[in-house]
Design a protein around this nucleic acid. Structure first.
Lengths: 257, 257
DNA sequence: AAAATAGTGTCTATCAGACAGTATCTG
DNA sequence: CAGATACTGTCTGATAGACACTATTTT
């Protein structure tokens, strides 16, 4: 059976051409909000933004790119992504998910470099104190649409586009909306977050469905105060709104049931 | 801005440790069916199976493993997976999807090897001639549960487990069921395929929902004969059953609507 | 007739979707 | 009281889920 057997002593990986690196690149999304009018309480304007760094060295010197870095032999690619994310945002317990690999020949002039793309969802409060790291000339948030029109380094435009499609799908099929919200939030805030990521989302009876529909009402729950009364917020409105939080329940979707 | 600039002439990738290989591994699933009784027409027994190869060389010599192989500098990893799949099954237009990367340090004794995992869904008719032609003991189908209990090479048990979770989710949320069916199929066949992949799936009114529910009825359509009459099949039953085919429509699922 | 698969009829509680109306607070 | 946000009432037709029932063909 083992006519052609090799063993450890005569195995040589180096007889083949090997990759020159396996970096992790991270598409860090956040939703910024700014009040439209200082004199009146009103819902803020929200915008989906992506964090980019300006490259300081060859290749693509001076162009904007995704943060990321080479992984090493002693860590998984997920760990290296988590490390990069912490360096870039200063926060460690943030939603991070792997979504695709990019390996088109000659995508990187430095050689055969296979890039592993992650997306992270970060609340804007975590990005306030960021600063340019060693290998970056500048770090900034850009509205996603603007970033996609910018001639990014490498194939990063495609990566951002793919990441956007991913979070749009996940926004509607999972509870990742919570990553952009505080622990407690109003229905309007949740609705706004969904609409910011998926502009086509439009549910006129949103509050009905999510609070009183049998199959969905486990997703979020009312926050109660110490007296058992509903805890309210008037952050954005004259009339106070009920606060909710996400539960651990995530409904299983199916096209057949 | 570019105080620390490098350029192409002084950039050296080789000053860092680089990976020893970036293979694609493929979890090839099929559903086998065998009639339970030769004297009577009845629905076949279906089982989800995975294709494994027995290794001939170090490392893990003699153990069963996923088919796969190293990718080269001149192709994307998807292309190399497609190439492997064609070599293994003899078919080229088969559903193939990337789902994860495996990079735990020392997962492969040959060195720093980052494996990219794909799953493929193949109709059993494509694996018949391969099985017959190459009846050597080194390529075989195993029932998934059996494969998971087998002490596979490398971290392939984890990969198979992850792949199974993936296709279970996709079976319910996309129309990949069609990859396991012929172009035309009966409702019972579709139901059986879903249940084979997701044993917990149980819908008593399945035929109602998929044929007459407004929001779902676009997924499949009746096959008509040249007279505009419904085309029937009595492959599995005494009473002939209507044949259906998938349309191009895939409903968009959402937990919020 | 029995067996096996393929459907249909019918019922009730719930839900979807639309839109008008009411509630609460601020400037 | 105008404006902004936060809900609630109410209506119609569609759907979910259960289960009994009928239909067609083979042995």
């Amino acid at each position: 059976m083992a006519l052609n057997a090799e063993n450890e002593s005569n195995y040589q990986a180096s007889k083949y051409r090997t990759p020159d690196g396996a970096p992790a690149d991270i598409v860090i999304f956040t939703i910024t909000s700014e009040g439209k009018d200082s004199t009146k309480k009103s819902l803020p304007h929200r915008e989906l933004q992506v964090l980019l760094i300006q490259r300081k060295q060859w290749p693509f010197e001076g162009q904007w790119a995704l943060p990321g870095g080479f992984s090493s032999e002693n860590e998984t690619i997920q760990e290296s992504a988590r490390r990069e994310l912490t360096e870039e945002t200063g926060v460690s317990d943030v939603h991070l998910a792997y979504f695709n690999v990019y390996s088109t020949p000659k995508r990187d002039p430095r050689g055969w470099i296979i890039s592993h793309a992650f997306f992270a969802l970060v609340h804007e409060r975590f990005l306030e104190k960021r600063q340019a790291a060693d290998d970056a000339a500048d770090v900034r948030l850009f509205p996603v649409e603007e970033a996609l029109a910018m001639d990014l380094a490498f194939d990063h435009e495609i990566i951002v586009r793919d990441a956007l499609a991913q979070i749009q799908t996940k926004m509607l099929t999972t509870t990742i909306a919570k990553e952009f919200l505080s622990e407690e939030f109003t229905i309007s805030e949740l609705y706004q977050v969904i609409q910011t990521v998926v502009p086509t989302f439009n549910e006129r009876n949103f509050i009905r469905k999510i609070t009183s529909t049998q199959s969905r009402k486990g997703i979020i729950e009312e926050v109660l105060d110490h007296n058992g009364q509903g805890k309210m917020s008037n952050r954005y409105s004259q009339r106070a709104a009920q606060l909710y939080r996400f539960t651990d329940y995530v409904p299983q979707l199916s096209i057949y049931s």
